[in-house]
Design a protein around this nucleic acid. Structure first.
Length: 296
DNA sequence: AGTAATCCCTGGCAGC
DNA sequence: TGCTGCCAGGGATTAC
């Protein structure tokens, strides 16, 4: 489940490798992953474009091109890796303690889950692989990105300089629903998914179903501060690898070893020792500490 | 209008 | 051993 820290890990790994390189040719093997344009048009738009920047907005990876932008959302299981012609493919599989059969870290040749390839010079390429096929690729002409609803409706960028408590509060107010459902809807902040939403709520000691309107100022501030903390920790740890996440060079992250609540239902809270609870919120498994995170 | 269920998809895994 | 059915979930869409 690539969330902001995972996408940022990919972005940082990819940027030095692909910036100022040229996409000679795009190859799409699963047409439905391309949104907005017929595949042939999408590939035509890509061909010959220079990659001038590699950015991120929320969970979107954004390749700034000479003319336009390539946006990639990784959905549930998307991987964007750099394939180096001079580097040996990593062979075989290894059995991971928690997740069973896993691709070894490192680069791999395209397989049946590799749905798009961006061929660069010298035979290098950017590879898009997505087992569950929930991700999407989209080309945006100059000026279209900011008007694209998937981008324009996003909440604040929690690691940006303009992430302030005033703006955070303004985007929180007047919503009747519960906290976690709102966070998953990318408001007031973009980039949280199921893992980091649970982690942020735990760090802020807030119940996932707590009503936004019932939050006291100190609680709003605690959430405002907790969000960038859990995200920055995730980035420091190179992302959370549960099943599918890999960095730009195919490497695993390690943040799964630092999670406080996600995936720990039935285990003990590290803070107070209470047994962590599991509930369903907005169709998503949600884990929290019933003692540290009171609803009222 | 705002919230909640539905759907897309594959592979891991429990159960028989 | 091999089959079946369930589970994981981001976000657009549909339903209330």
């Amino acid at each position: 489940l690539p969330e902001l820290p995972e996408v940022e890990t990919i972005r940082r790994g990819l940027e030095p490798k692909v910036k100022d390189r040229t996409i000679l040719r795009a190859e799409v093997r699963l047409a439905k992953q391309v949104e907005g344009l017929p595949v042939a048009d999408f590939c035509r738009k890509m061909a010959g474009q220079k990659i001038v920047s590699v950015d991120r907005r929320g969970k979107f990876l954004l390749f700034g091109l000479g003319r336009g932008t390539l946006a990639i959302h990784l959905g549930m299981s998307g991987q964007v890796t750099y394939w180096d012609h001079a580097r040996q493919d990593s062979p075989g599989f290894l059995v991971h303690r928690h997740t069973g059969l896993q691709k070894t870290p490192g680069q791999h040749a395209p397989d049946k889950h590799t749905h798009a390839l961006f061929h660069l010079d010298q035979g290098d390429r950017i590879q898009y692989r997505d087992i569950r096929q929930f991700g999407l690729l989209r080309f945006l002409a100059p000026g279209e990105l900011e008007r694209w609803p998937s981008i324009s409706r996003l909440g604040l960028e929690p690691l940006a300089k303009d992430y302030t408590f005033e703006r955070f509060e303004a985007l929180l107010e007047r919503h009747k629903g519960g906290l976690k459902a709102r966070l998953l809807a990318q408001h007031p902040v973009a980039g949280l998914g199921n893992i980091y939403a649970d982690e942020a709520l735990y760090l802020a000691s807030l119940h996932p179903l707590k009503k936004i309107q019932a939050l006291k100022e100190a609680e709003r501030r605690a959430l405002f501060e907790a969000i960038p903390l859990v995200l920055r920790k995730g980035i420091r740890n190179g992302g959370t690898t549960l099943m599918d996440f890999r960095g730009a060079e195919g490497e695993h992250g390690s943040n799964q070893n630092s999670l406080q609540v996600y995936g720990r239902a039935g285990e003990n809270c590290y803070r107070c020792g209470a047994v962590l609870s599991k509930i369903l919120v907005a169709q998503r498994t949600t884990v929290y500490c019933p003692r540290c995170q009171k609803k009222r």
